[in-house]
């Protein structure tokens, strides 16, 4: 169980992570979604004990990362695929990690085979493409056969085939009962690869749930055509709805359901010609949820 417990991280005056508090369940792929600079990478680094939280903590089965004696056997992570010594071979890179965590040497060849880079295992990793480096990073994450896996923006720079491979791979890890925690700034990616999503913005928790949960209670609008749109707009505003006129004398109504609008129009004696609920797209939901965060984000050029 991966638990984020009232986690806060400040860098000087900047608050990168602001009182985040959530749990990541095993058996599903959990997406960690937020715009760039919203604190996803900082949270990941704190989970791995690389950065020290200002307050709160992140725990793995009740222990903070630096209490783990053989961390790679409990948590596998891929933060930055290019963050390794370019002059070392892929095999030696993994062997050094295996030695430090007392993982059998045979496991190195297993994971190299699994991610499909066994043929270049003795080549220096500096010459690897981003896709190959990502695969090596995944090999490193899997090395200790951990129950918890963290991936920071894993699809960045991958080709479509690689993206599909990685999605299927996350699903299979989750199906094996592992905890899979994947960050992304792309809602569309999370929609297809994650079962549950945690949305943050400006370091703050915004909301969490399944993809359906997130879209269901997002502000949907209703498209309305009426005989007298101006009169109907006044009626609906009076009932507390947000009404915007469209170019061709139609209305876009938020805050009321289609039946409520129909009833209100009937009561006011205005003929309705069309009444169409518009379901919010995932992108709309995401933009809506993180709008505040983005506005601020443009002002301070803070890195994630």
């Amino acid at each position: 169980m991966l638990k984020i417990d009232h986690l806060t991280k400040r860098y000087g005056d900047t608050v990168a992570v602001n009182d985040l508090d959530f749990e990541v369940r095993p058996g599903v792929v959990t997406g960690f979604l937020g715009p760039n600079g919203s604190g996803k990478s900082t949270t990941m680094r704190i989970i791995l004990g690389l950065d020290r939280p200002t307050s709160g903590r992140a725990t793995i089965n009740g222990q903070t990362y630096d209490q783990l004696r053989a961390p790679l056997r409990e948590v596998g992570a891929l933060l930055d695929a290019k963050a390794l010594d370019p002059k070392r071979s892929a095999r030696n890179h993994l062997r050094a990690l295996a030695l430090a965590n007392r993982i059998p040497r045979s496991r190195v060849d297993e994971v190299l085979e699994f991610v499909g880079i066994a043929s270049v295992a003795n080549k220096k990793v500096g010459g690897f493409s981003l896709g190959m480096s990502q695969r090596l990073g995944i090999a490193g994450a899997l090395l200790g056969d951990p129950q918890i896996l963290l991936f920071d923006e894993p699809v960045n720079g991958l080709d479509p085939e690689g993206i599909r491979w990685i999605r299927d791979f996350f699903r299979s890890l989750a199906k094996e009962g592992r905890t899979v925690f994947v960050s992304s700034h792309l809602m569309s990616e999370m929609a297809v690869s994650a079962d549950e999503i945690i949305v943050i913005g400006r370091g703050k928790f915004i909301r969490s749930g399944t993809v359906d949960d997130l879209t269901a209670d997002a502000k949907g609008t209703v498209f309305v055509r009426a005989a007298d749109p101006h009169a109907l707009a006044d009626v609906l505003r009076g009932a507390g709805a947000e009404v915007e006129g469209t170019d061709d004398e139609a209305l876009s109504v938020a805050g009321m359901s289609a039946p409520e609008i129909g009833n209100a129009a009937f009561a006011a004696g205005i003929a309705v010609h069309e009444l169409t609920p518009q379901r919010a797209s995932l992108e709309d939901v995401f933009m809506d949820l993180t709008a505040d965060a983005l506005e601020y984000g443009h002002h301070d050029a803070e890195a994630s």
């Binding site: 690389l50 990362y65 790679l72 390794l84 010594d85």
Partner: peptide, 18 residues
């Protein structure tokens, strides 16, 4: 310093947090 230059220090510290 070569580990700081490449970023490999983070991999090292994730493998050995002590």
């Amino acid at each position: 310093t070569s580990e700081y230059a490449s970023g490999g220090i983070r991999t090292s510290l994730a493998a050995v947090p002590q």
